[in-house]
Design a protein around this nucleic acid. Structure first.
Lengths: 204, 204
DNA sequence: TTATTATATTGAACGTTGTTTAATTGTGCC
DNA sequence: GGCACAATTAAACAACGTTCAATATAATAA
């Protein structure tokens, strides 16, 4: 068969991403393979390689959807109504961190695929992928407005420091690379981070 | 042939780990395979599977060596002479962060293998692997003594927060998952983290 | 010294993976 | 109806993790 035109190129792409994301969700990144995706969408690997560049390309597209999903998750839970809320700066930040941690927990396999998969350092990230990251930081920076001053560059830096730190705590904890004892919890660690970092910001 | 006794079980293990670490160092985790290791040590995959449990087991052993190597790197660069040094608390911490970042940069492939490789969440980390992590934190906590109070639990928590945060900044930056612009550098971000976090600690 | 036992080592096999390519088949156009 | 184009396939390739019967060697017993 050829040009079945059952689906357009874009439809095949979307179906493959959906099926692939499902595979990762169920069995982690190692549970993903081009052949399983092809089987899942009723096509052959050849067709997949006609639509995607290679293995990395598919995973990257799947991860991009996860980034979108994460952003949607945070928007839904934290809303856009920053201004009218009466939460303190600290609580806003803690809520942001808790939200990220919850997403990572609830979607562990998809979330960890975000970091288990890396391109070779010399290969540049596709622009469309960078845009998903930037969209995420746009949201975070917006929520940081009350905490940090007007200075644009400083706001950028603060957002990145806080976000990367929260991610680091979340990543090491969920992947069992941070030995916790007794009362320690992920949220306890991020709260400590936020309380002290913000107190430091305000004391200057 | 059988029981060639050219090498003991332990020697084979050590040779395999060395060769495997070399493979990862040269071509990243995807450049590693049991067959290449076997070829490199002059044995067959079968022998490898006689000595190691499986693929994960080998990678875990390699990563454990990397953890040891990282600790040795930090001990060598930062020394044990905390007391006699005249560096400020801040500088001690910044030095710790800079040291970690340098190691990650100089040993990118081995370092990133530490995080690209994950066991399934239900499978427990081997104790001997946890011990390497704990040894690392022992060193870090010791260097944090001057910064944090005497309270043991709080010292533990502070060490973990700071270390995980530094790691998060380092990880997102080196793997191109944090869009930096212009003047921003990894060290700039970690310095901001440390300055504000410590200022927060002292202001309470 | 020889025979026996135990086991370290091998090689081949199995199913799976990413990736490429020639051959096929359906679609739109003249 | 026939022609050209391209979507789709099936098959192939080398490499992967993993297993296992067969084998060769060392240690032990006779």
């Amino acid at each position: 068969m050829a040009r079945r035109s059952d689906h357009t190129r874009e439809e095949i792409k979307a179906m493959a991403i959906a099926v692939g994301r499902n595979l990762i969700q169920e069995n982690g990144l190692p549970g993903f393979s081009a052949r399983k995706v092809a089987l899942g969408i009723g096509y052959t690997v050849g067709t997949l390689y006609n639509v995607f560049e290679n293995h990395d390309d598919i995973v990257l597209h799947i991860n991009a959807v996860t980034l979108e999903d994460l952003l949607a998750y945070m928007e839904k839970r934290l809303g856009d109504d920053d201004q009218e809320s009466h939460a303190s700066d600290l609580d806003v930040l803690k809520g942001l961190a808790a939200c990220y941690i919850d997403y990572a927990r609830e979607n562990y396999n998809c979330w960890s695929a975000l970091f288990e998969h890396n391109l070779s350092p010399e290969a540049p990230l596709p622009v469309w992928y960078g845009e998903r990251i930037d969209a995420l930081f746009g949201f975070i920076e917006a929520r940081l407005k009350p905490v940090v001053g007007k200075d644009e560059a400083e706001a950028r830096q603060t957002a990145r420091v806080l976000w990367a730190s929260i991610h680091g705590i979340c990543a090491l904890t969920l992947t069992n690379k941070l030995t916790l004892v007794g009362v320690e919890t992920v949220e306890g660690l991020t709260d400590s981070l936020i309380e002290n970092y913000v107190a430091g910001l305000k004391s200057r």
